[in-house]
Design a protein around this nucleic acid. Structure first.
Lengths: 168, 168
DNA sequence: TCCAAACCCTTGGATGTCCTAGTATATTGC
DNA sequence: GCAATATACTAGGACATCCAAGGGTTTGGA
């Protein structure tokens, strides 16, 4: 782990923005940069917790999504839409999960264009165990207090809705 | 742009967590997932704004950092620390920026191990123009209201400090 | 009926991130 | 003064993401 910096680099950037005549957008710049950095920190924690399972976050998300589907199966395009990633990213994740024996591909019964992704028995077990570890090691120790968690859910929920993620 | 989903997939995930007996970590899970998704949306906006300049966010960050350095030059390891990315990521960014003629590498005057990255005249101009576009198209239209921006800066600042980013 | 438009998935290419190693230079301790 | 340790950067590899393009399947209007 790198030694902490003496000062917050994002606060410094905000000051730079203000001094260069961009005071009107300095705060949003700092907030957005902080989101980028926070994502990086959280992703590293998540990947670390998943490593023992041979999973990455992208693959875990797909596994978790399938485990919540009634039938344990979903069309590729549905998974792409729900995970909000490019279809090729799903292809990539399925290739690797299939290689690990955690999911299988099968043809859609009525639509020849569609491929169904299905959880294997082992995939279901791994999803359960990985979730337990993530809950304990990451989500249970997020470092956000309860009130801030609520704030984040509210603020980011509004943002995502305005960005066109969902209509709700 | 994909059509909005009928419902918020993260809120659905939160409900799933609660129904499976993980109610105690359902909210932090939702907050963290929302941060991941928000980062993805913001990154796409930023990359879109930078595309006309032939820049990516990683390269822009390095350019911006250099433009705020008094001398317009920084050692690679300093840049790595301030941008909080792996040294190899800086090597990669410098390779490409150097190829575009926006920065140059030069030996450190006293430490033979160190390489200085220096902004070229063109690099300085591009940095300035790219910043102007980002300010107008992204930071100036973040979709966060002023009060929420303050909340984000506070919440994520505390998080980053606790994560060991800075001592401040 | 039949062909064009729409849709689904995959392949190939470009980028970025990190990790592990390896090379070169500095610094430290005996 | 010299060997051991620490630091700085780069090369190569694994993954993930997106875009552009291509081939197969469906759907819908002429």
């Amino acid at each position: 782990m790198a030694a902490p910096l003496p000062r917050d680099p994002i606060a410094d950037a905000q000051r730079n923005w203000e001094e260069h005549g961009w005071a009107d957008v300095a705060a949003p710049m700092a907030a957005i940069t902080a989101i980028m950095r926070t994502q990086q920190i959280l992703l590293a924690r998540i990947e670390g917790a998943l490593k023992p399972f041979g999973l990455t976050f992208a693959r875990y998300e797909l596994l978790a999504l399938l485990s919540f589907a009634r039938s344990g199966a979903l069309p590729m395009n549905k998974a792409s839409a729900l995970l909000q990633v490019h279809p090729t990213s799903v292809t990539n994740a399925v290739d690797r999960l299939e290689g690990s024996g955690l999911v299988t591909r099968s043809p859609h019964p009525t639509d020849g264009r569609t491929t169904l992704i299905e959880l294997t028995a082992e995939g279901r077990i791994v999803a359960k165990r990985a979730t337990a570890v993530l809950n304990t090691e990451v989500f249970g120790q997020s470092g956000f207090d309860a009130a801030d968690v609520d704030q984040l859910i509210r603020i980011l929920g509004t943002f995502r809705r305005n960005a066109g993620d969902f209509a709700d």
